[in-house]
């Protein structure tokens, strides 16, 4: 049926159009700027929280192991470009609502972030909790070590050692 075919073609064109426009948009986003926005080097125009505050990502060192929200390294792979764009536009999660409802991401920011996400998919996430734990333990030990050093200056008990010394001498039979 020609009508059906026509409609079908139209649909395909529409989809193609959407696809190409989306491709065209993503080509406009700047991944470097997206990264800067993600880590908070550049603040969002409306003042929303930088993504790294809660979301982990590969490629920014140890700091990329945020774990409040889900890791976004593979977000592009999992949701596709459209999915990502949709999410960035509305950020429809209850815990994020309060933060972004009055401070949405601008369109340019959305594009930059999307561009950044499309790059991070290739990176692999390294599990870091062990390293984090190790480093924190080292710091704790260091702080306690400093405390110990401060403690060296403390005055010791005075009377008891005098008595103990004498007892030791008597026990050894040295003195009566």
């Amino acid at each position: 049926m020609s009508v059906n075919r026509f409609i079908g073609r139209c649909m395909i064109t529409l989809i193609m159009l959407t696809f190409f426009t989306s491709l065209g948009f993503s080509a406009e986003g700047d991944p470097a700027r997206g990264k800067a926005l993600f880590i908070g080097n550049i603040s969002f125009e409306e003042g929303g929280a930088p993504c790294l505050a809660c979301h982990g990502i590969a490629g920014v060192g140890f700091a990329g192991h945020s774990n409040y929200g889900p890791d976004l390294t593979a977000v592009h792979e999992n949701f596709g470009a459209e999915g990502v764009a949709g999410i960035l536009q509305s950020l429809p999660f209850p815990s994020m609502e309060a933060i972004y409802i009055n401070r949405p991401l601008t369109e340019a920011e959305q594009l930059d972030l999307a561009a950044y996400f499309s790059q991070t998919s290739q990176l692999s996430v390294v599990p870091s909790n062990a390293i984090l734990a190790l480093q924190v333990s080292c710091l704790v030990i260091a702080i306690l070590g400093i405390t110990f050093l401060i403690g060296l200056r403390r005055m010791r008990a005075t009377r008891q050692p005098l008595i103990d010394n004498q007892r030791n001498l008597v026990n050894k039979g040295g003195l009566q």
């Binding site: 880590i39 908070g40 080097n41 550049i42 603040s43 930088p50 790294l52 920014v60 060192g61 140890f62 700091a63 990329g64 984090l132 480093q135 924190v136 710091l139 704790v140 260091a142 702080i143 306690l144």
Partner: peptide
């Protein structure tokens, strides 16, 4: 916000904070 805007600084401050908290 701008102090934490670099991953290195963020990480350093956070692990110091966690360590102090543990202490």
């Amino acid at each position: 916000g701008s102090l934490l805007g670099a991953p290195g600084r963020l990480y350093l401050l956070e692990i110091t904070g966690i360590a102090l908290g543990v202490v």
